[in-house]
Amino acid sequence: MPNMIVCVKQIADPEAPAGSFRVDEAARKVIPASGVSQVVSPFDEQAVEAALRIKDAQGGKITVLSLGKDFVMDVIRKPMAMGADELILLQDPAFEGADSRSIAYALAMAIKKIGEYDLIFCGRQAADWDAGQVGSGIAEFLGIPSVTVAKKVELVDGNVRVERVVTDGYEVIEVSPPLLITVSNELGEPRYPKLKGIMAAARKEVPTWTAEDIGAEPSKLGAAGARIKLLKLFIPVREAKCEIIEGENPEEAAANLALKLREVKLI
């Protein structure tokens, strides 16, 4: 039965209205909006779902790994409530100021500490910084193959069969484990946790590992290990110049819109 690891990130709800979004340009940081809840990044929930579907079919064990700070325990326990077996948190001031590389390094070191794994799942990208690098980075640090942007993952006779989304459809890729897979929204909706799952998840011990626990080299972590520097963070200015086409009723407004598009030669 496969040993599976899923990496998830806790982020501010990306569905929150854009109007609530603020940045501190001087500090080059996002200002947490009041009233916006924390969630598991949606693609990461789909990564959990991909692992759960394999567990449904073949059994196995799912360990969830999350690197971050200010964890909201009810939120970060959600993958366990959905059906994952264990959760391990990575939290240490040494992880701060990281780029994709230093995060991937820390997660790879934690995975080495976990030891046994056949499949590692990540979301295709975190829905905050949208970089989409950490999954590939973990695979590179571990020296294992990776398949990105998957919409279906199956274990067939000990081999992994992945459907990878490409521009004009998908490719079916076969590879033997161990393997890292990043999961896309085409996988489908993740399951909702059941009350029983929520209760069971709430009772589980959640260990927190530090940089020392995972045997990481300080020079490769956080800001020290970062290769890229954020120079500026800003909200782009939008020009509000929409001309609203009116009419006595919706039908007339619609006809006037067509006439307008004709007038400016767009149709």
Binding site: G247, A254, K260
Partner: peptide, 22 residues
């Protein structure tokens, strides 16, 4: 509407058929 050049505020169920016809 902050991104659009032209817009109609209305229910698409009414606007769309009339727009297509015109």
């Amino acid at each position: 509407f902050k991104e659009a050049r032209f817009g109609v505020v209305g229910d698409y169920k009414k606007v769309l058929p009339a727009f297509t016809a015109k």
